[in-house]
Computed example of a mutant assay.
Amino acid sequence: MVLNMVGLSMFALAFMIIATEAREYTVGDSVGWNTPTNETFYQDWATNKTFLVGDILIFNMTGNQMVSQVSKADYDNCTKVVSGFIGKEGVSVLEQTLVTSGPLYFICPIDDDCVKGQKININVESTNSGASTLQPHHSAISRSVGIVVALAMYFLTIAH
C-alpha cells in the first residue's frame, strides 16, 4: 500500500511539473517562417494561443529568410529594421525565449516579405499573476491530473 502511494505521488508530481513548464511554439507550425500565401497567415496562427513569459518561439526558416524584432510602428509599416535583428540568413532554426510580458512584433526584413504577410505580433502574458492562479493553457492539464490523482487515491483507500 505504501509503495502504491509513493508511486502515485511521484506520478502526480511529474505531471504537475510538466504542466507548468514553458511551452515551445513553432511559428507557423509545419509552414515554418516563410513568405506566406495569405497575408494574415501568421496572425491567424497566433490567434488562439496564449503566450507566457518563459515560453519559446521557434522560427524554422528555409532559404533567404530573417527575423527582426521591431517596434509597433516598424511592424505596421514593414520598416526594414536590423537593430532588433534576432535571426539571419543561413540559420535554419532560431529559438526566441519570451522574457518580458507585453506585445512583441516580429517581421522578415528581406525584400517585400513583410508586406506579403511574413510578420507576427503576439501578446506575452506574465506568469506571476497570482500564486494560486494557473495560466489558461497550463490549467487544463493540472486540473486533469488533480482529478486522476484524487480518483486513484480514493480507489486505493477503498481497496485496502
Rank of each mutant, 00 (worst) to 15 (best):
M1A: 11
V2N: 07
N4Y: 06
M5H: 09
M5A: 12
V6G: 11
G7P: 03
L8W: 05
L8H: 07
S9H: 07
M10Q: 12
F11W: 15
L13S: 13
A14L: 14
A14G: 10
F15E: 06
F15P: 01
M16S: 01
M16L: 14
T20Y: 06
T20N: 08
E21T: 14
E21P: 00
T26L: 07
D29H: 08
D29G: 13
S30I: 03
S30T: 15
V31P: 02
V31A: 15
T35W: 11
T37H: 13
E39N: 08
T40V: 10
T40E: 15
Y42G: 00
Q43N: 15
W45T: 05
A46C: 04
T47P: 02
T47W: 04
N48R: 01
N48A: 03
K49C: 04
K49V: 01
F51W: 08
L52Y: 08
V53D: 00
G54H: 07
D55Q: 09
D55R: 06
D55P: 06
I56V: 15
F59T: 00
F59G: 04
T62Q: 13
T62N: 05
G63E: 12
M66Q: 15
V67N: 07
S68N: 10
Q69S: 10
Q69D: 01
S71P: 03
D74K: 10
Y75T: 01
Y75C: 00
T79P: 02
K80P: 04
K80N: 11
S83L: 07
G84S: 05
G84M: 06
F85Y: 03
I86M: 08
G87I: 08
E89W: 02
E89V: 15
G90T: 06
G90R: 05
V91R: 03
V91H: 01
S92N: 10
L94K: 12
L94T: 12
V99L: 13
V99Y: 03
V99Q: 10
T100Q: 12
G102R: 03
G102H: 02
Y105T: 00
Y105S: 02
Y105I: 00
F106T: 03
F106Y: 15
F106M: 08
I107A: 00
C108L: 05
D111C: 01
D111K: 13
D112E: 13
D113M: 10
D113E: 09
D113K: 11
C114V: 12
V115P: 02
Q118K: 11
Q118M: 14
N121S: 14
N121F: 03
I122F: 07
S126H: 02
T127L: 04
T127E: 00
N128G: 02
S129G: 14
S129M: 05
G130H: 00
G130S: 04
A131C: 01
A131H: 03
S132L: 14
T133R: 04
Q135S: 04
Q135D: 06
H137E: 10
H137M: 09
H137Y: 09
H138A: 04
S139A: 10
S144I: 13
S144A: 15
S144V: 11
V145F: 08
V145L: 08
G146K: 05
V148M: 15
V149W: 13
A150V: 13
A150G: 14
A150D: 04
A152M: 14
A152G: 09
M153P: 01
Y154F: 14
Y154S: 11
T157L: 12
T157C: 09
I158Q: 13
I158M: 09
I158N: 07
A159M: 11
H160W: 07
H160V: 04
